[in-house]
Design a protein around this nucleic acid. Structure first.
Lengths: 223, 223
DNA sequence: AAAATTATTTAGCTTCACCTAAATAGTTTT
DNA sequence: AAAACTATTTAGGTGAAGCTAAATAATTTT
């Protein structure tokens, strides 16, 4: 076994990376849910990725998976492709930010390193994609991110929207409509203990908005 | 069995289309050579394509394959993707004409209809790709082509280069160097019975060139 | 027309990445 | 601590798309 990066493997690594970012090891079930496949299938693949040379994940029965160095590099490669592609589609073909995710998910596995380099150059080596998510550098380092969930703010906190999760087009359209997009400043006018709702004053918007946890957990801000 | 268009199937259909254009049915061996797989594997796939609903090819043992209407439409879809992509890569990312084929071969299977439409619009609905090859229309009709091989010209014939085969990068670099590119006018100064060499005067070039059949059979012109 | 050569097909096998059903391990609840 | 529940793994199986080796059909040469 060696360096054969199939589409599936790239998808596994990408999602393991994202789950690892969150907390600790990526569980079988979480991966299965994200990949839309049966948990049993995930177990098989994790065993394979752990036994490949070089190993791409560290995996112990019932304890989920984390990426090894080579696995992380491979994941960052895919994530760099994805985020550059999203940026490219928006600036070059006039896609809106809720339309790019799907297309990028397919293209990310297929473009050459040359294509990647040409996009990066044409776009002026961007550091964030249209949703504000950080783009790994050409040498596959993920820049540090100190943003926190909007949901963690409380009354009178002020912050700047940094990034939003890109995988729900409907949420993205809603956020655009209410002006919650990267680089916009917000002020928390009130917080509700019971449902976790936040009332926000959004820069450039006349009316305040009330957002529930389903939304505020998907938006990340810098204080 | 129904409308599942895998990458492999798309590749088979594309190459069958191109072989059909040439002469008659696409033979097992010719397909195997183009696809870089064993002839035995081709037989299996042709049987499958002929028995699918709807049938994508007409196939009789030992007589090769031709496309049905649905098969041709599917092939033209892939070819339209390929040729629009080549055009897009050249105009948008500064690829040169010998570099685009490979990348387009991978991307053609992956882009959405939306991506196709956006490219076509951004490029002003081009009718030919960078090699001069005709791009099937959005409703999947291949425009008529009356060009003939440069190899069929004789002394004192004049013609305009229309298109060149795109699958050999080295040949493309050579053609560019000697100025044999689409829309350029040429005059045949002499023809050699023995080796089929043609001596050409190429518009915009100081010196005449002598080209063998390996080249002149890959260049197509309008008289 | 027989022999030789070339093209194609059949048969049986492999790998990849998934699946379901059943078994087991780990975690909560009572 | 047992019972119940949830998460995970094992076992066995599928379809896609390739492979090799051997058989057969078609074509060309002698």
């Amino acid at each position: 076994m060696s360096e054969i990066m199939t589409r599936s493997i790239q998808d596994y690594l990408k999602h393991i990376y994202e789950l690892n970012e969150y907390g600790s090891a990526a569980s079988t079930n979480d991966l299965a849910a994200r990949l839309n496949i049966a948990p049993a299938s995930v177990t098989g693949m994790l065993q394979k990725l752990a036994n490949s040379k070089p190993a791409l994940v560290v995996y112990k029965k019932h304890q989920g998976a984390t990426l090894t160095r080579p696995g992380e590099k491979a994941a960052l490669e895919v994530i760099r492709h994805h985020r550059l592609l999203e940026t490219f589609l928006v600036t070059t073909l006039g896609y809106s930010w809720d339309e790019v995710h799907c297309e990028a998910d397919k293209l990310e596995h297929v473009i050459s390193e040359d294509f990647e380099a040409r996009m990066a150059k044409a776009l002026g080596h961007p550091t964030r994609d249209p949703h504000g998510e950080l783009i790994p550098t050409a040498d596959l380092v993920m820049p540090a991110d100190k943003s926190c969930p909007l949901a963690s703010l409380r009354t009178d906190d002020t912050a700047t929207v940094r990034r939003v999760s890109d995988d729900d087009p409907a949420l993205l359209r809603h956020l655009r409509k209410i002006g919650v997009v990267p680089e916009v400043k917000i002020v928390v006018k009130s917080y509700s203990e019971f449902d976790g709702n936040l009332t926000l004053q959004v820069e450039g918007q006349k009316l305040n908005v009330v957002l529930g946890k389903a939304i505020t957990s998907q938006v990340f801000v810098d204080k």
